[in-house]
Design a binder for these strands. Structure first.
Length: 712
DNA sequence: GGCATGTGTATTTTT
DNA sequence: TACACATGCC
C-alpha cells in the first residue's frame, strides 16, 4: 500500500532519521536529538502519525517540560492531520500538571480528598518556617538553613529518592551539622500538609507514582496506549519511576532528549535516565538526530568544541549545512557598564539591518545578571520581556488575594489562614495560631490528629471569640466577604440566594449558592482594597495587578482550576499578562539560560562569559557541577541561528551591598579556553562611548543621523 | 504578645 | 535588596 505525500503531510521534508523516529511502530523508542535537530517537529509529527494510524488521540500522553511546549507541539500535530479537535484530546502537559489532572479523577484510590489544593515553593517555605518556630529551632545561636533552603533540601531528597544524610552531604554540605533539626522539620512538614489537604509540587509526582501502584494502577496505565516524553534528560528518579509504573501492558514509550543539554540537576534531574533508558526498557530502538537545521556551521563548530572535553555522553556529531563566514564573537569589555552599552548598540545595529527585536535575545546565567541592562534598555526605550526573573505570582498582593481564594477552596489551608490573619491589627504569630485553633484549621499537630470540627471557613462565619478587639471589625468584613462568595448568610445557615441553571457549576461541587468565580473575585477585591492600602505603598499599581489577575480568571469557570493552573503554570513573563493589543509589538527577549531551553533566535547575546559567572562559582565544587555548567553554556550557544556574541567584562566591581571602587579582574570563562581564532573572532569594545571600533561616530551620536531619525 | 526598629548576612538555575 | 533575628517599647 503506497502512502502518497498528500495523505501523510507529516512525512514531507523529514530526513531519514526523523522519518524513522516518526514512523516507529510500537515498543520503546529513544530519540537522541542534538540541539536544533528538529526535535519538536519530530515529536509533533509522531503524534500526528500515531493518530493517523488509528490510535485514539486521548490514548496518547505527551509529557513536556513546560505547558507552552506541549501546546505548541499539539497545535502542530493538529494542523498536520487537519483536524482541529485531534490536538485538544491528546493528554499533554508537564508531569506536574498531568499528575494533578489524574489525581482529580483518581484521588480516592490514594486516599486524597477531592478538594486538595496545590502550594508553590514559597508556601512550602512558609510552612517550614512556621514549624521551625513551633519546634523552637529559631532560637538556636547557630545559623540554621533558611526556609528556601529547607524546601530545596526536602525537594531534592524526594525527587532524587536519596536519604537525607546523603542529600545534605552531596548537595548541601554547609547544612550537614543541622541534620537533626532539618529532619524534625521535614517530618512535621509532611504531617501538616496531609492534615491540610495540601500538596506541594513534589507530592504531585509522589502521588502519581502511588497511583500507578494502587489497585487502579493498571487501569490508569492502560488509559494510554502511547506515552511520549520530551526533554527526557531533565527528568528525575521519581519521574522515571512514574513512567515505569505507567508502562505495564503497553511498552509504547518514546523519550526524546539530549544528554548534552541536561541542565536541571539542581532539581534532582539525572542524566542517567536517558543514558540508561535502553537497559531500563529492553528492546529499545535508538534513533539519533544529528543534522542541525538551526545554526550556521561556525556557530556549531564552536559549540561542539566547547562540548569536546565533556565526559559521559552519547556519541553524536552535530553537523549543519548552513554556511557562513561569520564566526561567534568574543567581545571583551572594560566592565559591566561597557558591556551593557555595547550590547545595546549591537542590538540596535542588527535591528536597523532588519532583524526585529523579537528575533534577538540576551541570555545570562542568573536572573540578576541582566539588572544593569534592563535599566539601560528602559532608558533607551528598547522594549523587552524577561523570562525567568521574579514572577507576577510572587508579588505579595497577588499572594494575598490568592490566599483568600484558596481558603474558599480549601478551608484547612494553614498557610493561607496564617497570611490572612496577619493583616489584622494585633494579630501576630501567636494570635493567628489561637484563632486557627478556635476555627479547627489545624487538624494535625505534633503528629497527633485533632478532632475534625468541620470547615473552618463556615465556623468563621459563626464568629470568632479569640481575635483581639482591634481585629474584630476587619474580621467581620472578611466574614461578610466569605459569606457572599459562598452564598451563605452570616449565621452560617441556608444559602442566601439559590442559583439555578448553573449545572456544570465551575466551583467543583461546593455549596450551590456560590457566586460565579468572576463575582467572587470582584467581591474579594472589594474586601481587599482597604487591606492593601493599609499594608503597602503604591496601592494603585498593586490593585491594577489584581485586575490583571481578575482578567486571567475570566477565562475560567472553576475556581479550583484557576488557582491550580496559576500555581502549576504561572505566567512567566509580563507578555503572558499582556492583552491582545500588545501582542504584535516587537520586543527583545531577556532570559536566563535555563529558561531559553528549546528556543532559538537569529541573533543571540550571551552576557558575563567570565569564570565565576559561567561557570557560576557556586557550582564549581565538583566535576559534576562544572560539567553541568559546560552544558549550560553549550545550550546558550546553540540557541543562535546566525549570529552569536559572547560578552566578557574584564573588570568586576565588588560593591554588592554598597558603593565603593574596589574591583577585581575576571578571567574569560574556562569553557572557551583553547578555542582558537579559527573558531572565534576576538573583538575589543570601543573604549570611548559613541565611537565605534574604527573611531567613527555611531548613528545615535552623530548629529546628522540623529536629527534625521527624529524626523522619521 | 505584638510590633517597630536596628543589625548582620547572604549560594545561581524552575515545575 | 531581602530576610532572619535581637532588642526595646507598647
Amino acid at each position: 500500500m503506497s502512502t502518497p505525500i498528500e495523505s501523510t503531510p507529516w512525512l514531507f521534508g523529514l530526513n531519514s532519521a526523523q522519518r524513522a523516529a516518526v514512523t516507529h511502530g510500537g515498543g520503546p523508542l529513544l530519540i537522541v536529538a542534538g540541539a536544533g535537530t528538529g526535535k519538536t517537529r519530530t515529536l509533533a509529527c509522531r503524534v500526528a502519525h500515531l493518530i493517523d494510524s488509528g490510535v485514539a488521540a486521548d490514548r496518547i500522553l505527551l509529557l513536556t517540560f513546560t505547558r507552552r511546549a506541549s501546546g505548541e507541539m499539539l497545535n502542530r500535530a493538529a494542523k498536520l492531520i487537519g483536524k482541529e479537535t485531534a490536538g485538544g484530546k491528546v493528554w499533554g502537559g508537564t508531569f506536574h500538571a498531568v499528575a494533578n489532572r489524574l489525581l482529580r479523577i483518581y484521588h480516592n484510590s490514594v486516599d486524597l480528598p477531592a478538594e486538595f489544593t496545590v502550594m508553590d515553593e514559597s508556601d512550602a517555605g512558609d510552612l517550614m518556617n512556621l514549624i521551625r518556630g513551633e519546634l523552637g529551632l529559631s532560637k538556636k545561636d547557630r545559623r540554621f538553613p533558611r526556609k528556601q533552603t529547607l524546601v530545596k533540601i526536602y525537594s531534592h531528597m524526594v525527587n532524587a529518592h536519596r536519604p537525607l544524610a546523603k542529600t545534605l552531604e552531596l548537595h548541601f554540605p554547609w547544612c550537614k551539622d543541622e541534620i537533626d533539626g532539618v529532619r524534625e522539620i521535614i517530618e512535621q512538614y509532611v504531617l501538616r500538609k496531609q492534615g491540610q489537604n495540601v500538596l506541594d509540587y513534589d507530592d504531585l509526582l509522589l502521588y502519581w507514582a502511588a497511583l500507578t501502584a494502587s489497585p487502579l494502577g493498571e487501569e490508569i496505565a492502560d488509559r494510554f496506549e502511547h506515552i511520549l516524553v520530551d526533554e527526557y534528560q531533565d527528568t528525575n528518579a521519581v519521574q522515571a519511576e512514574i513512567l515505569r509504573g505507567m508502562r505495564r501492558k503497553y511498552d509504547n514509550i518514546t523519550v526524546v532528549g539530549d544528554d548534552a543539554q541536561s541542565i536541571y540537576s539542581f532539581r534532582a534531574a539525572t542524566v542517567r535516565n536517558i543514558l540508561d533508558f535502553p537497559e531500563q526498557y529492553p528492546g529499545t530502538t535508538t534513533v539519533t538526530l544529528e543534522e542541525n537545521y538551526r545554526s550556521t556551521k561556525p556557530i556549531l563548530a564552536a559549540a561542539n568544541a566547547v562540548m569536546e572535553p565533556a565526559t559521559e555522553r552519547y556519541t553524536k556529531e552535530l553537523w549543519s549545512d548552513r554556511k557562513s563566514e561569520l564566526r561567534p564573537a568574543i567581545v571583551s569589555c572594560d566592565d559591566e557598564s561597557q558591556q551593557t552599552d555595547i550590547v545595546c548598540r549591537n542590538i540596535l545595529e542588527h535591528y536597523e539591518q532588519g532583524i526585529p527585536l523579537m528575533r534577538q535575545s540576551v541570555l545570562f546565567r542568573a536572573g540578576h545578571h541582566s539588572a544593569m541592562l534592563e535599566i539601560e534598555l528602559a532608558k533607551r526605550n528598547i522594549p523587552f520581556h524577561k523570562y525567568g526573573g521574579l514572577k507576577f505570582i510572587e508579588a505579595a498582593h497577588i499572594k494575598d488575594v490568592l490566599a483568600l481564594l484558596r481558603l474558599l477552596e480549601n478551608p484547612f489551608d494553614e498557610i493561607s489562614w496564617f497570611r490572612v490573619l496577619h493583616w489584622f491589627d494585633g494579630v501576630g504569630p501567636q494570635t493567628a495560631r489561637r484563632v486557627m485553633d478556635e476555627l479547627g484549621v489545624r487538624r494535625v499537630l505534633d503528629g497527633a490528629e485533632q478532632a475534625d470540627r468541620g470547615s473552618p471557613v463556615l465556623r468563621l462565619l459563626e464568629g470568632v471569640s479569640t481575635a483581639p478587639v482591634a481585629a474584630r471589625e476587619p474580621l467581620g468584613e472578611l466574614r461578610a466577604a466569605f459569606a457572599d462568595c459562598l452564598g451563605r448568610s452570616l449565621d452560617g445557615e441556608a444559602p442566601r440566594l439559590a442559583r439555578d441553571g448553573d449545572d456544570d457549576g465551575g466551583a467543583g461541587g461546593h455549596g450551590r449558592g456560590e457566586l460565579e468565580l468572576s463575582a467572587q473575585i470582584e467581591r474579594i477585591r472589594a474586601f481587599y482594597q482597604p487591606i492593601c492600602e493599609k499594608l503597602y505603598d503604591n496601592t494603585d499599581v498593586r490593585m491594577r495587578d489584581i485586575d490583571q489577575l481578575a482578567g486571567i480568571a475570566s477565562r475560567y469557570r472553576s475556581r479550583q482550576r484557576f488557582i491550580t493552573d496559576l500555581t502549576l503554570d504561572p505566567p512567566v513573563s509580563t507578555s503572558d499578562l499582556a492583552q491582545a493589543p500588545h501582542l504584535d509589538e516587537d520586543f527583545l527577549i531577556l532570559s536566563t539560560i535555563h529558561s531559553s531551553k528549546g528556543c532559538e533566535w537569529d541573533v543571540v547575546h550571551i552576557l558575563h562569559a567570565a569564570d565565576g559567572m559561567i561557570p557560576s562559582d557556586m557550582a564549581i565544587r565538583d566535576q559534576d557541577g562544572i560539567d553541568e555548567e559546560r552544558r549550560l553554556f553549550y545550550v546558550a550557544m546553540t540557541r543562535a541561528k546566525d549570529v552569536l556574541y559572547i560578552y566578557f567584562p574584564l573588570r568586576y566591581y565588588h560593591h554588592r551591598f554598597g558603593l565603593g571602587d574596589g574591583h577585581g579582574y575576571a578571567q574569560l570563562t574556562r569553557f572557551l579556553h583553547g578555542l582558537g581564532p579559527d573558531l572565534l573572532t576576538q573583538q575589543r569594545a570601543g573604549a570611548i562611548e559613541g565611537v565605534d571600533d574604527r573611531g567613527r561616530l555611531s548613528a545615535d551620536v552623530d548629529p546628522r543621523s540623529r536629527v534625521g531619525k527624529l524626523l522619521e
